[in-house]
Amino acid sequence: MNIIVVAIVACEIGFWAVLGAGLGARYLLRMRRLSSVLLLCVPLLDLLLLTLITWDLVVNGTTADFAHGLGAVYLGFTVAFGHQIIGRADGWFAHRFAGGPPPFKAPKSGSAQVRYEWQQWGKMLLCAVIASVVLGGIILLVGDTSRTAELTGWIGRVWLVTGIWLIGWPVWVTVSGGGKEPEPGEVSNQGSH
């Protein structure tokens, strides 16, 4: 089995385990300091994955494959969306175990939906930039285009997804009228899907 695939899966499991432990310490055990320390460990998983990818390609002399590119994009995703994921999990825990307000729900109409979709795409744009920088940095470190062709391909893939996301969500919601404010008294059935 590919060591990078194992590392990506381990990082994802580790992310949820550390997040759950941190939020459990905060809301169930009421140990805020321990919670903060655990939650600060989340970025260490990204650093470990980046180190492993770089080590495998630079030190081991491995030829980049699908998993190496996926790992770099995974890093971009966790940096760009990680805070939001942690915040939503924190909101759910606070609601469930500490009497906090109901968890956040994405707006389904109006200018709030338009703003939300553009903000989400902004995070995807950040993900694409981070992934491209990581991929480009590794390509430069390896210094052998025959071994890093797969990584170059991943740069194109992440920007293709970013472009599709742009057109399919924020632009579509903005120009299709999905962002119109509901009429007074109008009942929206968008929440029933």
Rank of each mutant, 00 (worst) to 15 (best):
P102G: 10
L23I: 08
D56V: 07
V79E: 08
P102F: 14
G24Q: 07
A17T: 15
L70P: 01
L75N: 00
T152N: 14
S109C: 01
P184L: 06
V187T: 15
L45P: 03
M1E: 13
T174P: 01
I130R: 01
L49H: 08
L48Q: 02
T54K: 04
G14Q: 05
M124K: 01
A98V: 12
K108R: 15
W154F: 15
P43K: 02
G100T: 01
L40Q: 13
W121T: 07
W118L: 14
A89G: 11
M31A: 14
G14H: 06
G156H: 08
G76L: 05
L50F: 15
W118E: 08
A25N: 00
S146L: 11
A25C: 03
G163Y: 10
L50M: 04
T152H: 11
L29S: 13
R32C: 09
L47P: 01
G143W: 08
W121G: 02
R115A: 04
V158Y: 05
T148N: 11
A72L: 14
F77G: 05
W159E: 06
L52D: 02
I13N: 01
A106G: 12
L49C: 09
K105H: 09
T63C: 06
G122P: 12
W55P: 02
V161W: 10
V133Q: 00
V158P: 03
G71H: 02
V142E: 02
V58K: 03
V142D: 00
C127D: 09
K108A: 10
G100W: 09
F81C: 05
L40W: 08
I4F: 03
G71W: 01
G24I: 02
L50C: 06
A64F: 01
P103R: 13
G137W: 09
I139H: 07
R32N: 10
F97A: 06
H83F: 13
A112N: 10
S188Q: 13
V142S: 04
P43R: 03
S35V: 07
W16P: 05
N2W: 04
A7R: 01
S188M: 03
A80I: 06
V175T: 12
V42A: 03
Y74T: 05
A10Y: 06
A89D: 10
W172D: 11
E117D: 09
Q119C: 14
A89L: 01
S192V: 14
V134K: 03
A25G: 08
Y116A: 14
S146M: 00
M31V: 04
P103E: 12
C41F: 04
T63P: 00
V158W: 05
M31I: 02
Q113P: 06
A21V: 01
G136Y: 04
V129L: 13
L75F: 15
I4W: 05
T78W: 10
A21Q: 10
L140K: 06
